[in-house]
Design a binder for these strands. Structure first.
Lengths: 230, 230
DNA sequence: CAGTGGTCTAGACCACGAT
DNA sequence: TCGTGGTCTAGACCACTGG
């Protein structure tokens, strides 16, 4: 068996005994234990990261991944409710809100001129204190006056409905795997280049007008998507 | 800017000019061009792989990824039809079919004793000659007599319906990101350890009895999942 | 401050692919 | 046979974390 596979196996066994979020031995400790080199140790760690069993925090170390949040994109479930049902403590943090000229894809989705202005809301969502998702929400400025004064750390859907009387009636998501971009990784205090799930959600009102365009980056080991059809 | 980022940028620009599936310069060529080392060159290549822009074939080299297949797990769409609509040439290859004692998870799903016997069908699906998905189908042997004699390279749904008069009426999928396991990677002539989408599909008849339990491994850069809800 | 991971070098040998 | 990627060594310096 290859050396990095042995190291992988050793760490996997370690994880079996550990609680969520526990720190693993440092790369140099592992290297000494296996009379190996950092390259090989890191090969093993990266594979486990891709499998979703462990995750990195920039320059802090490697940690055991907690259970995945099971999420159904069809049900218009509230993040807080969903997380609590599954035994997590959920949290949302507003990073910033600003008005901006939206990227071209977003403008096209709104069928508007590039000169029109959007709100851009950046939020981070956590489970048990661990950041698991970065969210970038675009919506038209003129449709949501004074949005920056509202409570943006809760459910956006509820806010749209209660404060602006706008109800979401349908939704379209696109799910791909990609690498966490550098700027997004920094905001999640994670490492760039790790795999992540990128979910683009477009939500529409009853008149089929686009209400918001959301780009979500999920730490890939933190989520499992469930879909049912009848 | 970091060296591996420069190399990434260079390759990204290269890709812009290339057709799908074109081979990239070898690692050693890139290394010389940037007066660098293989570690650094590979860092750049791995990140592009995670982003889905390029893929590896074991010991053959690195290639430019074609466009992604857009797939909607809700619509009970036929693979061939879907692929052709999007301009791909689809293909299915039967690797083998055997009767086997199913893994415990599968037995539990069928609510049967571990001693009961299942069919296990292994297939690889390709787009334009590139393997993109490995599929492992479990179904109960007594429900599908002589399955091994049937045409197993087409739609299983159609086969169930035409040959056994069994119709799928609902379906439940679970989607996660993980690493391609070694044995699966070999069957796809790809490299182990690359990210992949793992989709577990359970399909039920009108009486809500489980008909088949499918485990699919998708080359992550080859697929984009689309979900709509109303 | 010591310890961590992040980046990087300059090599090596091997199994396998294409020819 | 030669070139490819796959695995591996034994170092190095840096930025940042945590005490």
């Amino acid at each position: 068996m290859l050396l990095y596979q042995q190291i992988k196996q050793y760490i996997t066994a370690l994880i079996g005994n550990k609680e969520r979020d526990v720190k693993l031995p440092s790369e140099r400790q592992l290297l000494e234990k296996f009379h190996s080199s950092r390259i090989t140790v890191r090969e093993a760690l990266f594979r486990l990261e891709t499998e979703g069993l462990i995750y990195r925090q920039n320059r802090k170390g490697w940690f055991v991944s907690p259970a995945r949040l099971r999420w159904n994109p069809i049900k218009k479930a509230n993040y807080y409710q969903l997380a609590e049902e599954q035994g997590f403590i959920p949290q949302t943090r507003l990073l910033h809100i600003q008005d901006t000229v939206a990227p071209k894809v977003v403008c096209r989705a709104f069928e508007q001129d590039a000169t029109d202005v959007c709100w851009e809301v950046f939020r981070v969502r956590s489970l048990d204190g661990r950041p698991v998702m970065l969210e970038e929400i675009f919506c038209q400025k003129q449709a949501f006056p004074n949005l920056y004064q509202k409570a943006l750390e809760g459910s956006i859907t509820a806010l749209f409905s209660q404060e602006y009387n706008i109800t979401i009636s349908s939704e379209q998501s696109s799910i791909t795997v990609t690498a966490l971009p550098d700027d997004k990784a920094e905001l999640l205090s994670l490492n760039a280049g790790a795999p992540c799930l990128k979910i683009i959600r477009q939500r529409f009102c009853q008149q089929n007008k686009l209400i918001d365009y959301n780009i979500e980056y999920w730490v890939h080991g933190a989520i499992e998507i469930e879909v049912k059809s009848h």
